[in-house]
Simulated assay, not measured.
Amino acid sequence: MAAAAAAAAAANLGEDQFLSEELPSVLWGLDPVFSAFPRLYVRDIQDMPESIQVPGIYFYNSHPVYRVDVLGKVVYKREREDFFCYGVDDGTGVINCLCWKNELLKGGEDPHTRDPKPGFCPRSRPCVMEKLRRAQHNRCRLEIGELLRVRGLVKTSRDKQREILASSYYKVNDPVMSVQIAWMMEVPELYRQCYDKPLNSTSTALNKAKGIILDFCEEKSVNRFRPYDLQNILQPLVSSQLQTTAADQQPVAGPSACQQLCQLLKEALDTLEKEGFIYRKVKSQDQVYNVTTQDKDLLIAVKCIIREDSAKDKYAVKGCHILHILSAVRQRYSLNVSRAALERLLSFLECSSDIISTGENRYTVF
């Protein structure tokens, strides 16, 4: 009895821990894995815990998953009137795949063994349907040992086993194993670059903050601003309530809502500055940021530099190199203009037909 109680307590603890780590459902759409068919190993599909919030949603390393893409060998098969049931082995495990039959496959008769009807004309419409039926039969009716690719929803069967309810499936012809080799090279890279990296809600908030700031500057035609001008528009991203414990509802140690807002704003501005969307013409205690493509003085300065120097023999043929333009801008306008900001500005001017590109990182005027 004591052992059973301990096991139950451990199970409850594991469930509570997973619930505390599970991403809120309102944020699932921010994860690109949620909108895709992730190519997960069968072993991981079988081991994924199910969501406490929404049944039918599973989690791999905090990524919400409800549909997958699997490639493997057929190791067993069952056929019913309306569907095929294939066991697919990808080398890490075997999963049951429920594959519904197309209307052309229903009836159970093999089109290759069917006798043609008397008076059958090869140019008639039934001939076309017969070809479609045969093609569908060859692609969807597999034998043990053949290669199958399945895309579909992940479900938990009545006996608590994971299975895939296929939305699309087909036999893969791979005589030289080129498809399997490509798959074995791509999937580990997807794990390294995406699946094994947990979704960072902080970076998600940062991306949303960057988008809000850029939209604000574009809609209001803002050419310069101070950080406190943006605090109100970022306020919805930060919860105004302090973190509380579930036990006694007492505040716990941590940054206040105001501190979180200031930190988010600082990180968003730093990132936008590194990416060249904004820059500071003069660095002082009075933090004033200029919007790169809205700064008319900077636009005029860059166009004048390119126009004047393109007339010189040295730059008449190939145009002015970006490093030359950057050096001239820093001498004549501001030392704080970064290369990222200049690249963004040159792209803006080129789209506006104010300058043209004569080669890699070289520009001139019409």
Rank of each mutant, 00 (worst) to 15 (best):
160 K>M: 11
145 G>E: 10
123 R>Y: 10
149 R>G: 06
160 K>F: 13
112 H>M: 12
116 P>A: 05
126 P>K: 05
159 D>A: 13
149 R>D: 05
113 T>F: 00
116 P>N: 11
129 M>V: 13
150 V>H: 01
115 D>L: 00
153 L>C: 13
144 I>V: 11
142 L>N: 06
116 P>Q: 13
151 R>E: 04
121 C>L: 14
163 E>F: 05
144 I>L: 12
145 G>V: 03
149 R>H: 07
135 A>N: 12
129 M>N: 13
151 R>N: 09
145 G>D: 12
111 P>C: 06
163 E>Y: 04
116 P>W: 04
134 R>P: 06
163 E>R: 06
135 A>D: 08
148 L>D: 03
163 E>L: 13
119 G>N: 11
121 C>H: 15
137 H>F: 10
125 R>Q: 11
116 P>H: 13
117 K>D: 04
137 H>E: 10
113 T>V: 02
146 E>M: 01
109 E>D: 15
137 H>M: 07
155 K>Q: 15
159 D>T: 12
110 D>P: 06
133 R>D: 05
147 L>R: 07
136 Q>M: 10
147 L>Y: 01
128 V>R: 05
140 C>W: 01
120 F>D: 00
119 G>C: 06
160 K>V: 15
112 H>Q: 14
140 C>N: 03
128 V>L: 00
145 G>Y: 03
113 T>I: 01
145 G>C: 08
128 V>M: 02
131 K>F: 02
154 V>E: 03
147 L>P: 04
152 G>M: 07
108 G>K: 07
125 R>E: 11
149 R>I: 09
157 S>F: 06
134 R>C: 05
127 C>W: 11
144 I>F: 13
153 L>I: 12
156 T>D: 03
115 D>A: 01
162 R>F: 07
121 C>S: 14
121 C>W: 15
128 V>G: 02
145 G>F: 02
145 G>W: 02
137 H>K: 14
131 K>E: 12
122 P>F: 07
129 M>I: 13
141 R>L: 06
109 E>P: 08
156 T>I: 12
123 R>K: 14
136 Q>G: 10
163 E>T: 14
143 E>L: 12
137 H>V: 08
125 R>D: 15
147 L>T: 09
139 R>A: 08
112 H>Y: 08
159 D>K: 05
119 G>V: 02
150 V>L: 00
122 P>S: 09
161 Q>N: 07
134 R>G: 07
139 R>H: 09
135 A>T: 06
133 R>Q: 08
145 G>R: 10
161 Q>T: 12
140 C>V: 01
148 L>K: 05
150 V>Q: 00
154 V>D: 03
114 R>D: 00
118 P>K: 11
110 D>C: 06
116 P>G: 07
155 K>F: 10
126 P>F: 04
152 G>C: 10
154 V>S: 02
112 H>D: 15
129 M>S: 14
155 K>R: 14
145 G>S: 09
132 L>P: 04
142 L>D: 04
118 P>I: 02
143 E>W: 14
159 D>G: 12
144 I>E: 14
156 T>G: 03
148 L>P: 02
149 R>N: 07
154 V>G: 03
138 N>K: 08
120 F>W: 06
150 V>F: 00
120 F>R: 01
149 R>W: 01
155 K>A: 10
115 D>F: 00
135 A>E: 09
126 P>H: 09
118 P>V: 02
122 P>Q: 09
119 G>E: 09
130 E>N: 14
110 D>W: 03
129 M>D: 12
117 K>S: 06
118 P>Y: 04
